[in-house]
């Protein structure tokens, strides 16, 4: 019973993290000084969920967090959620097929997640007929965006993992770095 309660608490914390990341992203990383970084903390959280959570729980979490992202953005409904879900699915596949034991693999996971997110976003933008308006900003911010994602993946994963350990959540995969 206690374990289940802690698990629910952990889910609540992850959702709160999603909200907090949306807030930080829309305020701090949109200031003139930091706007060029355009760090996507929500994507990193999605990648973590894909990396460390059972599939059903992970999908539900990504749907909730993707929805939070959408209510903090002017993106067409469903667009961001689709991109985040795609990145989540790709991470699940990655964790099934690849052994991620090094720091570099985690950094690469963050950066490649960023590339996949941008590609899926631009493809959806093309089909939604908003590509001419968004591709410029996407490409312009891509290099600092990927660097920031790569650098922040490891510290963020460690932070959330500490919470996982504190709340006694069992890790679904034994393959991971930690």
């Amino acid at each position: 019973m206690r374990r289940e309660l802690f698990h629910v608490l952990n889910i609540g914390i992850i959702i709160l993290f999603g909200l907090m990341f949306c807030t930080v992203q829309s305020v701090l990383f949109r200031t003139q000084l930091l706007s060029f970084i355009s760090l996507d903390l929500v994507l990193l959280l999605t990648l973590f969920i894909g990396f460390k959570r059972p599939i059903i729980e992970g999908v539900l979490l990504v749907v909730v967090i993707g929805h939070f992202a959408e209510i903090h953005s002017g993106a067409p409904a469903g667009m961001l959620m689709s991109c985040y879900l795609l990145c989540y699915a790709a991470t699940v596949l990655t964790r099934e097929f690849f052994l991620m034991e090094s720091e570099l693999s985690i950094i690469l996971l963050g950066a490649s997640g960023g590339v996949l997110w941008k590609i899926s976003f631009l493809v959806l933008a093309y089909f939604m007929d908003i590509l001419p308006n968004v591709w410029r900003a996407s490409i312009l911010f891509l290099p600092p965006y990927l660097v920031a994602l790569g650098l922040c993946t490891r510290p963020l994963f460690s932070l959330i993992l500490k919470i996982d350990r504190a709340t006694g959540v069992e890790e679904p995969s034994e393959l991971g770095l930690y």
Binding site: V27, R30, S35, S38, A69, S73, L80, V134, A137, S138
Partner: peptide, 14 residues
């Protein structure tokens, strides 16, 4: 104005 869009590709304000 208290916040901007989550993504640089979109231009909404809160």
């Amino acid at each position: 104005v208290i916040a901007q869009d989550l993504l640089p590709e979109f231009r909404t304000l809160r």
